[in-house]
Amino acid sequence: MAELLQVSNLSVTFPGSSGRVTVVDDISFTMQAGEVLSLVGESGCGKSLTALAIMRLVPKPGRIETASRIRLEGQELMDLAVPDMRRVRGEQIAMIFQEPMSALNPVQAVGPQVVEALRLHERITSREARARVEELFERVGIPDPRKRFESYPHQLSGGLKQRVMIAMAVSMRPRLLIADEPTTALDVTVQAQIIELLRELQSTLGTSVLLITHDLGVVNELADRVLMMYAGRTIEAGLREQILSRPRHPYTHGLLRSIPARAARGQRLAEISGVVPSPEHWPSGCRFAPRCSERLEVCTKQVPESLELDATHSVCCHAVAASLAEGAP
């Protein structure tokens, strides 16, 4: 598989009360063409900002630090001029948002909104565009596309709105689709349908998907690989089976044990004590250390290095490193 996206040393900062606060801290990862990579982590750990940074849409006064490198198919996005970057958005990278309720313009019918998205990047007549959009609507499972074309967002259910968003996002057949918690705002049965649709589109279009979620069920359904984030840093990365069945980082462990379906019947659900601190109060050393049950002395002092467990699985944890060192000699 060819390398599609290469993110290296990505940092995003915001001005805080005492200097700039780093909310995404030196993140690196790669994505292969046609792959579904899932970005998992608690609320506020910087998942959305990572996604927005890839599109260079970090909201002001946030800033992507200059050392960050984002390569899409060999092209360095950080060096692109604004109009060129605008062409990349929508054409090569598209995004689906969490809130279908508010991601469509309330005073315009949904069909014309998708038409405009299409005509932004392609010179076609409005009649052709309309035909294409109706086709797209059909494709993403919107019943009666001709009638729905004229509907306003408030006339559609959340699931239908999300389908419209998906139609808009895939209209240009982007190489990379970023889905930021695409199912969080929907109810459970609709969630399953949207996941099914994403899977179907992903396999037929061959699009790579960067799937942001904190729902490990969704990860299990869709992801090829998983990137775990905690407090602005990546802490563990690996194939889906590796992360879901042989997690090494104590945080990943804890997260898996807190899922109801996985806990043994009658047993109390495990929880990770404490809450994620806000970016200004992130501790030095390992940021998970204050909540960690396997904390060593070194954890609060030194940032753990990334440790390659095998070709696909890596983890940043002093405890894992120590246990490996113990077992090695």
């Binding site: 599109m55 958005r89 929508g90 598209a94 809130e99 508010s102 998205a117 808009m168």
Partner: peptide, 15 residues
């Protein structure tokens, strides 16, 4: 300008 649909438009490459 902070609303999602403005953000979504930016993500589609609208000027």
């Amino acid at each position: 300008r902070e609303l999602d649909y403005v953000e979504a438009a930016r993500a589609l490459g609208v000027s």
